[in-house]
């Protein structure tokens, strides 16, 4: 009798233990997507700052009203994400300084990787950017050029960004320079600053910042627009080596 009870108990334990095992057969987040944000007017990738702009994606495989996720865009205008779930996504480059663009619907993203580029029209180009060193004063100059001028949001400010590594922009800068002293407060509509042809600013914007001898800086200028995201169009980055005293 005792033997039978032990046998039954043993069997029950085995079955019970086995039933605790659950096989998670759902695929991990292994799907990949990458691509570029291309400036439609030049064909080149947009000049951006690391992590400041995003592509908003919605996974529509399972829900009609999914919670959105944002993919960060790199400073060279490319993006890559290798930790998504396989599925169908809607994608929209959303919070940068470009004219609002249409959502790209039903992008299939899978393990093999999907390349999806986006073409956008920037609000402004920061052109003729130069950085001239005179002693410990670094003078930065730029002009603005607008591919489309009708209904362009108000231009808020032109600012110089300074950093001590190669990543430079509104999201990656030395805090010391992030004050009202190193900017031009514009607050004007395009028609007040554009030239006769209407697509380039007349006067250059000039900002001078103090730098330290013997240090290397990466600098650029940017223009902020009064759109939903207070977004920035940026110049290219220039490396400045300040000679030792």
């Amino acid at each position: 009798m005792k033997k039978i009870i032990y046998t039954i108990l043993g069997a029950a334990l085995l079955i019970g233990a086995a039933s605790c095992m659950k096989i998670d057969n759902f695929a991990g987040p292994e799907a990949q997507v990458s691509g570029k944000i291309i400036d439609k007017t030049t064909g080149e990738p947009m000049l951006l700052d690391h992590g400041v702009n995003h592509i908003r994606i919605w996974e529509v495989s399972y829900s009609l009203d999914p919670t959105p996720q944002d993919l960060a865009i790199k400073e060279d205008g490319t993006y890559q994400n290798t930790k998504l779930f396989s599925g169908t996504y809607n994608m929209l480059p959303r919070d940068g300084a470009w004219w609002p663009c249409d959502t790209t619907y039903n992008v299939a993203i899978g393990k093999k990787g999907t390349v999806q580029d986006f073409e956008v029209t920037p609000y402004l180009h920061v052109i003729d950017f130069s950085a001239d060193l005179s002693g410990t004063d670094l003078t930065m100059t730029c002009k603005l050029q607008a591919p489309v001028t009708d209904n362009l949001p108000q231009i808020t400010q032109v600012r110089a960004f300074v950093n001590n590594n190669m990543h430079c922009g509104p999201g990656n800068q030395m805090n010391y320079y992030n004050t009202d002293a190193y900017r031009v407060n514009v607050r004007k509509m395009w028609n007040a600053i554009g030239d006769a042809d209407g697509n380039q600013t007349v006067d250059p914007y000039v900002v001078t910042v103090p730098v330290k001898p013997g240090y290397t800086y990466w600098v650029r200028m940017g223009v902020q627009l009064n759109d939903t995201f207070n977004s920035w169009n940026l110049s290219k980055v220039i490396k400045v080596e300040v000679p030792s005293e």
Binding site: P100, P153, Q154, L225, N226, D227, T228
Partner: peptide
Amino acid sequence: VAKYNQYTGITG
């Protein structure tokens, strides 16, 4: 809000 919100430039 009626008067000044327009100047924030937020759309959507």
